Simulated assay, not measured.
Amino acid sequence: MASMIKGIPVTLIKKSKTGTDPFGGPIYVEEELIVNNVLISPTSSEEVLNQQNLTGRTAVYTLAIPKGDTHTWENQEVRFFGKRWRVFGIPLEGIESLIPLDWNKKVTVERYE
């Protein structure tokens, strides 16, 4: 049975350190990876307040990541809706076999430009 709920493609921007500049600062190269079938929902008011109290950051959206995804999401940047966002906090993950739909992990993002 095909799921009636469908996500959208999201660009995950993976940064890899390639060296250091003359002042000792890190130099990174960005690799863009497309992750399909990601659900995006506005973060609830209660979650926004909780995140602000805990981290000082403003959660805007929560992304549901599809089962089987092995990318690193923590502290990464993503692009969707034509804007750039930063993942913050630890991804929350459930046991794949116990979750009935196609997603078992969620991350929270804040606006980043």
Rank of each mutant, 00 (worst) to 15 (best):
N50Q: 12
W73T: 05
G56C: 05
R79S: 15
Q76E: 15
Q52S: 08
V29N: 15
I65C: 07
P42Q: 13
H71P: 00
L92G: 05
E93A: 12
I13E: 03
R84L: 11
S45T: 14
G89F: 03
E46V: 13
I95K: 08
S97D: 13
K17L: 15
A2E: 14
K83D: 14
E46P: 01
E113A: 13
V48N: 07
W85Q: 00
D69Q: 10
R111H: 10
Y112A: 07
P26L: 02
K17P: 01
T108Q: 07
A2Q: 10
G25V: 00
T55W: 02
V10I: 14
K106N: 12
A59T: 04
K67E: 05
L54K: 09
E32C: 07
H71D: 14
M4G: 10
W73Y: 15
G89Y: 05
T18R: 13
P22H: 04
M4I: 08
R86C: 06
P91M: 06
L49I: 06
E113M: 05
S45N: 13
H71I: 01
I99E: 06
K15N: 10
V29I: 10
I95P: 04
D21V: 05
E110P: 07
K14E: 15
I90R: 09
T70G: 09
R57I: 02
I95D: 11
W73I: 03
D102M: 07
P26R: 05
T72V: 11
I34V: 11
T43E: 03
I5S: 12
Y112Q: 02
L49P: 02
A2V: 14
R84S: 12
N37L: 00
L101W: 12
T58Q: 13
Y61E: 00
V60M: 14
S44Q: 12
T72G: 15
T43W: 08
E77V: 03
I99R: 07
N37D: 14
V109S: 00
K67R: 10
W73L: 01
K83T: 02
R79L: 01
W73S: 06
F80D: 00
N53S: 09
I95T: 12
T70L: 13
G89Q: 03
T58M: 08
A2S: 13
V10G: 04
E77G: 02
L98R: 12
L101I: 00
N37M: 04
I5M: 09
P91K: 04
K6N: 09
I65N: 04
R84T: 14
V38Q: 03
T72Y: 07
G25L: 03
I90G: 00
S45P: 14
G89E: 04
N53G: 06
R79E: 12
D69A: 11
Q76A: 14
G68F: 04
K106V: 07
R79G: 01
E30M: 04
A64Y: 09
G25S: 08
Y28H: 08
L49E: 13
